[in-house]
Every structure is written in structure tokens, then in C-alpha cells.
């Protein structure tokens, strides 16, 4: 609604552009394509065609026992929805995305609130907190694998020292517990990004709002609920969208920590697609799963693109 007058401007500009001579418009278009052509062609070759090819592959029944892929249309998807493992992987993927994205939001916001206050060595605290985000995913995964180790992990030995008994919990060895463990590691790895976004947003909230609220006698919690949260709500929404997309697609931390085990309990879409394609060489099933994850991620990506286009009034 608010964008309406700006939209009017844009269409007026477009009308003016249309009145320009054809030759100039052609020249403009050619310059535009000259600049953006390489990127467009590359993305066409590397993303659009591969996605099309994946959809095509998903219509075939392939496996090592069948020498010639058999076309069977959407039947593969019907079959897919009847396999318990596939359903479990979908459930895991959704659970993983929701938990990791939510806690990255909660912890990211809490940390941003802490770092938005002035205290000595704030720069040091901020630099330390951002380290996990800078560490490569493979390294983070290996560090957490060691940290969770039943014998040598610091987690067990810290719990033992705190008096919980002589613990040798295999954090990554039990279904259920393993999922919780990888979720915690992924939160650790990624919440720095959310923190940076929220910190920037908090610094943009006008101080005068807080001052007048204080004069009106609003407490800390009230100021947070009625000033801070509404002011940064749109940043929270876009950050949540981005982190959900990235989390859904995140491959290496689970691949390195559990490889999808134990008993496939920590498999999510990317790791399962990898296993189907490059361990079992079942490209048909892998492609069906890939198509499914395209669709799931697209729901979020379309939201994100709509927000970007709206705010730039494109």
C-alpha cells in the first residue's frame, strides 16, 4: 500500500522511457545485456539447466541393477512418499531447520542485546563471539565431534567434574540425542550472522524513542516489547528467512559429524541426496529428493525475493 505512490513514479518513468526513440532503447538494452550477460549466461548454464535436468531425471527409475533408466513419470514420487526413510528424512529436515533457525534467532538477538550495551572490552567479546561463524564448516564439525567424544570430549569431562557422575555419554551415538547434538553445533556455528544483523538493527533504533519511554515510566521489559521488537521486526523476518534457507541447505556439519547416522537418524535432505547419488548411485531417487527440496526452499526464497523487490521498489 505504502509503495503505491513510488510505483506510480516508476510507471511514469517507464512511460517516458517508452517515448524515447527506438534506437536509443535498443542501445540501452544492448548495454544492459553486455554488462549482465556473463552473469546471466553463467547462471543459466549452472543453475537453470541443472534444475531442469534434475526435474527430468526425477521422472526416471534408475538404480545399479537397471542398465537402462525406465521412464515412469510421477510414480517415483508416489513411491517416495511411501518409504519410511524418505519420510523420516523430510521430518528431520524440517525439525532441523526450525530448531536451528529459531535458536540462532533467539541466541543471536540475546547476544546482540548484550553487545549493544557499553562495557569495557566490548570489542573483544564481539570478536570472540563471531569466531565460530568464521571457522570453516568442516573444521567446526570436527571440533564438535571431538568435543562430544565419549572418552576424550571436554563435554563429558566437564559434566563429570561438575559432579554428574563419571560420564561417558556418546553424544553422537544415540538416535534422538545425536540430532539434538548436531543441532546445538549448528546453532553455535551460525548464530554469529544473526547476531551481526540484529546488532546493526539495534544500533539503528533512535535513542529518542527510549528516552521518551523512560519519561513515561516504561520498564526494561516494556521498552523491549514496545520499542525494540517493533523497530527491528522486519530485520528479524528477513534474517529468519535467510538463516532458514541456509540451514535447510547446510551439508557439511552433519556429513562430518555423523554422516547421517546413527541408523540414519540425523540425515537431512542434502546429506541424504548425497548418499543416494554418490554412495548408492541411485540418481533417480536422489533427483526426486532434490526436486522436493527445491520446492521446500522455494517457498522461503520467493518470500525473500518479494521483500527485496518491495523495499527497492523494483
Amino acid at each position: 500500500m505504502i509503495a503505491a505512490p513510488a510505483g506510480g513514479d516508476a510507471s511514469a518513468a517507464a512511460k517516458r522511457a517508452r517515448r524515447r526513440p527506438f534506437r536509443q532503447r535498443l542501445a540501452n538494452a544492448l548495454t544492459g545485456y553486455a554488462f549482465t550477460g556473463p552473469a546471466i549466461i553463467l547462471m543459466f548454464l549452472l543453475v537453470v539447466i541443472p534444475v531442469g535436468y534434475t526435474i527430468y531425471l526425477s521422472l526416471f527409475d534408475t538404480s545399479l541393477t537397471k542398465p537402462v533408466p525406465l521412464f515412469f513419470g510421477l510414480k517415483g514420487f508416489q513411491k517416495l512418499f511411501k518409504t519410511p526413510i524418505a519420510l523420516m528424512v523430510i521430518r528431520n529436515s524440517l525439525l532441523w531447520t526450525v530448531l536451528v533457525a529459531f535458536f540462532q534467532f533467539a541466541l543471536g538477538l540475546a547476544t546482540a542485546l548484550v553487545l549493544n550495551r557499553t562495557f569495557r572490552f566490548r570489542w573483544l567479546a564481539r570478536s570472540l563471539i563471531i569466531i565460530p561463524w568464521v571457522i570453516p564448516g568442516v573444521v567446526a564439525g570436527m571440533v564438535w565431534r571431538l568435543f562430544y567424544d565419549a572418552q576424550f570430549g571436554f563435554l563429558n569431562s566437564a559434566l563429570t567434574r561438575l559432579g554428574f557422575g563419571n560420564l561417558h555419554i556418546d553424544w553422537l551415538g544415540l538416535p534422538g540425542l545425536a540430532m539434538a547434538s548436531v543441532v546445538v553445533a549448528a546453532i553455535w556455528k551460525g548464530f554469529g550472522f544473526s547476531m551481526l544483523m540484529y546488532l546493526a538493527a539495534l544500533q539503528g533504533v533512535p535513542k529518542s524513542l527510549y528516552e521518551s519511554a523512560e519519561i513515561d515510566g516504561a520498564g526494561t521489559l516494556q521498552r523491549f516489547l514496545y520499542i525494540t521488537l517493533p523497530s527491528i521486526a522486519s530485520v528479524i523476518r528477513t534474517t529468519l528467512l535467510l538463516t532458514s534457507i541456509w540451514t535447510f541447505n547446510y551439508f557439511e556439519i552433519i556429513y562430518v559429524m555423523t554422516g547421517g547416522g546413527p541408523i540414519r537418524s540425523t540425515h537431512i535432505a542434502p546429506t541424504y541426496i548425497y548418499e543416494l547419488a554418490f554412495t548408492n548411485f541411485n540418481f533417480g531417487n536422489a533427483s526426486r529428493f532434490a526436486v522436493l527440496s527445491f520446492l521446500l526452499v522455494s517457498v522461503l526464497s520467493i518470500q525473500y525475493i518479494r521483500i527485496i523487490f518491495k523495499r527497492e521498489k523494483l
Partner: peptide, 17 residues
């Protein structure tokens, strides 16, 4: 839109093609 969209694709899903 196509370019922003492709940034969000799951790499594991387009690695086969």
C-alpha cells in the same frame, strides 16, 4: 530474481546435474 534465487538453491540438489 533468477540470480538471487540461485544463491538459495541447495548445492547438494544441483550437484548431480
Amino acid at each position: 530474481a533468477m540470480i538471487i534465487f540461485s544463491q538459495m538453491f541447495c548445492l547438494a540438489a544441483i550437484i548431480i546435474p
